[in-house]
Design a protein around this nucleic acid. Structure first.
Length: 216
DNA sequence: AGAGTCAAACAGCACT
DNA sequence: AGTGCTGTTTGACTCT
């Protein structure tokens, strides 16, 4: 069984009582709306919200845990104003992380709690990373398409060469036998026999996507 | 009204 | 201990 201080960050005052059947273990915790861990789901659960029983557990402001709002009123989820978002974006452009002093100053400037600023930067970094990953994914997808096309083209080239080969005069590797005169010596063997360097296969044209990348 | 999306807030883990 | 990252939850909002 778990008893939760169900205030979302600061402003929530409801007390949630949740009973989880988690195999017998029980513990007390505070924090936001509790969630079952993906690896160990704890269903079924019972959540009891008692708005009249505002839990006044106070937590450290600059810890990872929320502090408490003065009026103790049940809060709605905060929506940042355009001005707040714009300033946060500006600061994020300057630097994607904040030291505690910067965090405090920005929080004062925005009339927000430091924890809110911290969370905003965390989420903003996550969004940036997600976007970058999406761009990279799209780039790799295009590379894959290019390689597939190149592969198709090369296979076709092989087919064409094979069909040409069927029509071309028959070469043989001359053992010096009596019938040798009826065949022509293939150019590579001729070259070798005459002491020249062996014919070198043309370099394969391999497309390395990373060598052509401008994004990395 | 319900589905879908966005973003604020959180928990838990890893790292220093 | 403090901080960042990742995954998740959930309230607010929009669209159909």
């Amino acid at each position: 069984m778990e008893v939760y201080d169900d205030r979302d960050d600061v402003q929530e005052t409801a007390l949630s009582l949740r009973l989880n059947y988690d195999g017998g273990s029980s513990h007390l915790s505070t924090g936001d709306h509790p969630r079952p861990q993906a690896a160990t789901p704890v269903e079924p659960s019972l959540t009891l919200v008692l708005p009249s029983m505002a839990c006044s557990v106070k937590r450290e402001n600059d810890g990872r845990i929320s502090d408490e709002e003065e009026d103790g009123a049940a809060r709605k989820k905060l929506r940042l104003t355009k001005e707040q978002s714009a300033l946060l974006e500006d600061k994020f452009k300057e630097h994607a992380t904040l030291n505690p002093k910067q965090k405090q100053a920005l929080a004062r400037q925005l009339n927000l709690r430091p924890r809110q600023v911290e969370v905003w930067f965390q989420n903003r970094r996550a969004r940036t990373k997600l976007k970058k990953t999406e761009v990279e994914c799209e780039f790799l997808r295009k590379c894959c398409e290019t390689l597939r096309e190149e592969n198709r083209r090369l296979l076709q080239e092989i087919q064409e060469l094979k069909s040409l080969d069927l029509q071309a005069p028959r070469y043989m590797h001359p053992p010096g036998g009596a019938a040798a005169g009826t065949f022509q010596t293939c150019p590579s063997c001729k070259n070798r026999d005459e002491g020249g360097s062996p014919a070198v296969a043309p370099k394969t044209r391999f497309f390395n996507p990373f060598a052509h990348s401008a994004a990395y």
